[in-house]
Computed example of a mutant assay.
Amino acid sequence: MNDENPFPRDLLQLQERLHRAHAEHCAYLAGLPWSVEPMKGWAHGERYSHRGDVPDSPGWSDEQKETVDRMWAEIRQLSIDVVDHPHWKSIPADILVVSRMRLKREGRPAEAADAA
């Protein structure tokens, strides 16, 4: 911790890992079929016409389901680690939320901060 950054280095590293884990999870989900379970698609106008034609979904494989579960478990644990970090006990209650929001901004990986 220093005057320029009020957060301990390990807390910043945890927050950065959380941002990265969340980004990896979102990217992984984007590459999966649209339905977890096999489901028939539909043509434009049949249902949810705002999406246009939707192809059949083969569903997710057991490996894909396990990967998503593992990623969620990592995100949950990192979230717990950030929230339960001892640093928060030293922050007055009236500025706790503002301080946590600042950590979210400052703990972003460089490439994510550049894209935002």
Rank of each mutant, 00 (worst) to 15 (best):
N2Y: 04
N2K: 08
D3C: 11
E4K: 15
P6L: 11
F7D: 02
R9F: 09
R9V: 09
R9C: 11
D10T: 13
D10Q: 11
D10L: 02
L12K: 04
Q13S: 07
L14F: 05
Q15E: 10
L18P: 12
L18W: 14
L18D: 07
A21K: 01
A21C: 01
A21D: 08
A21S: 10
H22G: 03
A23Q: 02
A23D: 07
A27P: 05
Y28D: 05
L29E: 13
L29G: 06
A30P: 01
A30I: 01
G31Y: 01
P33H: 01
W34M: 00
W34S: 05
E37I: 12
E37P: 10
P38V: 00
K40E: 14
A43S: 14
A43L: 15
H44D: 12
H44R: 07
H44Y: 06
G45E: 12
R47S: 08
R47M: 06
S49I: 05
R51V: 09
R51G: 06
G52Q: 09
G52V: 10
G52E: 10
D53K: 08
D53N: 13
V54P: 15
P55Q: 09
P55Y: 11
P55S: 13
P55C: 09
D56F: 02
S57Y: 04
S57H: 05
P58A: 12
P58R: 15
S61H: 10
D62A: 14
E63F: 09
Q64T: 03
Q64R: 00
K65A: 12
K65L: 13
K65T: 11
E66R: 13
E66M: 14
T67C: 12
T67K: 14
D69M: 12
R70D: 10
R70G: 14
R70P: 02
M71E: 01
M71T: 00
W72L: 13
W72A: 10
E74A: 03
I75C: 02
I75Y: 06
R76D: 14
Q77H: 09
Q77L: 07
L78V: 00
L78S: 02
I80N: 11
I80L: 14
V82C: 15
D84F: 04
D84M: 09
D84C: 01
H85Y: 07
P86D: 13
H87A: 13
H87M: 08
H87V: 10
W88L: 06
W88Y: 09
S90C: 10
S90N: 12
I91W: 03
P92Y: 05
A93Q: 02
I95W: 08
L103Y: 11
L103H: 04
R105P: 00
R105G: 00
G107A: 04
G107P: 03
R108A: 11
P109C: 06
P109A: 02
E111M: 05
E111Y: 10
A112F: 15
A112M: 15
D114S: 15
A115K: 15
A116D: 15
